[in-house]
Amino acid sequence: MKVLRDLLRDYRFTASFIILCILLAYSSLSFFSPIDPTVWVAIARDQPPSSQHLLGTDSRGIDIFWSGAFAIRNSLIVALVAGVVSRFITIPVAMLAGYKGGMTDRVLMFISDSFLVIPLFLIIVLLAVLIRENLSLVTLGLLLACFGWAWDARVIRSEILSLRERGFTQTAILSGSGTMQLALKEYMPFVTPLVFATLINVMAWAIGLEITLAILGLIKLDIPTLGTMIFWALSYQAILLGRWYWLLTPVILSVLLFIALYWLSVSSSEYLDPRSRIQRVGQSLRA
């Protein structure tokens, strides 16, 4: 409770907390949705906002308010899968590299550097082109997880190196039991905050890429996500037809989501480590 109170002193945390609560509440409405957002022309098309359809309906005859709720839920699913699964690569790589040092470290860091250096966006596109119709929420999340671990592994590894320098135990190498287990036991408590802060960044990155891929038509387009909502609005020329609410709904929702996630990450990592803020270089230059 005290932690929460301290955090709430930061305007960014407060704002992101409130925005996220609202977005989560909105997205959880999708569980009680009266409509199925994948069924076309069940209702009248191109309705302007009204008391019956709060944000109107789109040219496919789908209620925009409700598909917005589904979109946030689905984008968050992609983000969570990508974020959580990528931890299963990030943490072992960082631990091994930081803990073992030497050749292991060099090889692992070479691999993660290659991931940073190569224009990942193109590789992801290449993959997405090939498995387009199989690209469901979970597979997309998994795909992004395979690519979203490298930066964080680097950040966490350097934290482990500095922990080692400050002399946080050296027992494991001598005792000879499973390196991974010992590394986890010794360093996990110290790097958990970092793991969390970087997790939020990967989530934001995943949501951004989901939108980009969807607009390129590279994921299953009948699932309502923030990206597919924008895709349909664009492909039906929503701007030219003056149906702003259709396009603006997913755009504003995603902007709110990005700001909230970013502020959450920045404020919580500053709280956890006020001196050397974890907010690092590459987070949003990420495409």
């Binding site: 934001a204 755009v251 949003s284």
Partner: peptide, 18 residues
Amino acid sequence: AMVVRPMPYYVFAFILLL
């Protein structure tokens, strides 16, 4: 900067376009 920074390229370019 706190407001602009979290925007992904696509979304930001798109807002400028609009």
